[in-house]
Amino acid sequence: MDIRIANVRKEFGVFPALHGVSLDIKSGELIALLGPSGSGKTTLLRLIAGLEQPTEGEIYFGNENASYKSVRERNVGFVFQHYALFKHMTVAENIGFGLRVRPRSTRPSRREISKRASELLDLVQLSGLEKRFPAQLSGGQRQRIALARALAIEPRVLLLDEPFGALDAKVRKELRRWLREIHEKTGHTTVFVTHDQEEALELADRVVVMSQGRIEQIGTADEIYDTPASPFVFSFIGESSVLPVNVESGKVWLDERPLDLPAGGMPNGPARLFMRPHDVEVVEGGPGAIPGVVSLIRRHGGSRRVDLEVGARRDRIEIELPADFNRGTSSRIAVRPRRWRLYPAEA
């Protein structure tokens, strides 16, 4: 099921949560809504589900305008961060709930419902737990039951709100792989919300990066990571250092020193140079390199992280160097970014 979100605005009272967001989701895609808290990602998900109504704009499921349909009519599978399992029902009753509450004319027989519940338990690899109550399950198991329950109604879209947010790191990784497998098996159009970039980049076909109620960038993991569309995306995704610089006559200047970096089409004036620690290399002096004083060295897995104080204001940038880097603190080195991006200075 294609989903089209067209210029959706949402206000809670006077507080705007989303400002005119548009997004096209292709059938069968796995999409991540990624952003810090307060970025509007959960609001967008709840708008797609119909748990909230947009203040302005439209939401289409295929060619059908779903904007004013209730959550019941939209037939979406929604998985909540804290599972929202029905505490007083067994696992099988939880999974069968969506079928049991159907009007009599479309309700499957009791036997069919329990057969379907067993099939779904197989799918989420929890066969044999039919008679358990939610309180007797681990967090990871509860989340799988919540997913099975959402899948039971054969939803047109599967929506997950921070599905792994309440789980510990190890279970999280397992469930991530497992969700991908389920997605490939069932082929549902799936949208999930997360603030964990690793999760988003690893799991999703396309990632929607959001900030302050706006979409900053939509793209594959490679696009988001390698060609960030905005300073926000660059600093939010992965690690980065920022260096205030000046652009003049097509060149990037650090204080009074021209750097060996083309400014592209940037207009003259103050700008910010973004780079990632592992995209910076040490060079032997030479014109155009960034000179700096090593202020801190620490071991970081298989490599070393070095803080460098640069320029007259002693701005700090972080660079990643091989573990055999043997210069001490206070030594002077010169570095040059292999990849970088320039953005205008903040207003």
């Binding site: 589900a49 959550v71 599978g77 929604f78 029905f86 709930f97 509450v101 329950r149």
Partner: peptide, 25 residues
């Protein structure tokens, strides 16, 4: 309201949500 939201998203009417989810709780 999370359990109630789960119930309506699964297609339960307001009355059935009350009867099967809110009241037992």
């Amino acid at each position: 309201t999370e359990e109630e939201e789960a119930a309506v998203s699964l297609g339960a009417s307001g009355w059935k949500t009350f009867l099967f989810v809110t009241l037992p709780n």
